[in-house]
Design a binder for these strands. Structure first.
Lengths: 109, 109
DNA sequence: GCGACACTTTACCATATGGTTAAATATAAA
DNA sequence: TTTATATTTAACCATATGGTAAAGTGTCGC
């Protein structure tokens, strides 16, 4: 019941649209981190970070593990796949378009 | 002055988080379209579509060309690159992580 | 010129988002 | 048991977002 690769493009892209959350993801890509560790670089209250983590978790990008009073968050590696694939697909088409632009009629900007 | 690849990750991801806008992008990847053509598949007012197009344009993903009373929108092919690259970078790291998970300590879920 | 057409702009509205502070919960330490 | 630490939850607030209807703008066709 791993809820693997559900078509949650909305959630994934929405999550990634916030710089704080992208930064958290970047931190987590170096390994699991406690909430304090994650919060440290930001000039922001702990509840704010907690909320971001909840959003990230709901979108399936991270998960957590409780150890004593600490809570370690870590990345769920395949969670971004659907979004990645969506963009890849577009990118292919767009590359073709780029050729059309160079040779073609649309020279706007 | 092409405003090429400014670090507008926020805007790009934000734009992509809306299914209507993703759908518009998918349509446009088949070629330029007028506003009516773009609006046709949606059960939504024209102003709503117009707004979405504006958002897409502001984020730099599309541009338009006026022809008579029609307005043709088209994709700006390299506009998604920064976002694409960001995800690619993550994906590489995550793939490594996946290996760590299989062999490793985090078996959560 | 005038009405139809294509589209945008302008209010306007409900809900979502991202932040805050203060209180609650849970575990560790003294 | 009391206190400190780690984190979440709750209540609140301002602003952003995605939609609407109605009016405005510009172009075409009669």
């Amino acid at each position: 019941m791993v809820k693997c690769r559900k078509n949650n493009l909305n959630d994934v892209f929405s999550v990634l649209s916030d710089p704080t959350r992208r930064s958290i993801i970047e931190q987590l890509s170096k390994g699991e981190r406690s909430v304090q560790e994650l919060a440290q670089p930001f000039d922001m209250s702990l509840p704010a970070i907690s909320k971001h983590l909840k959003v990230l978790e709901k979108a399936g990008l991270v998960s957590q593990r409780k150890e004593g009073r600490y809570r370690y968050y870590f990345i769920k590696p395949d969670s971004m796949d659907s979004a990645c694939e969506w963009m890849e697909g577009l990118k292919q088409v767009w590359t073709k378009l780029e050729g059309m632009f160079s040779g073609g009629k649309n020279k706007s900007q």
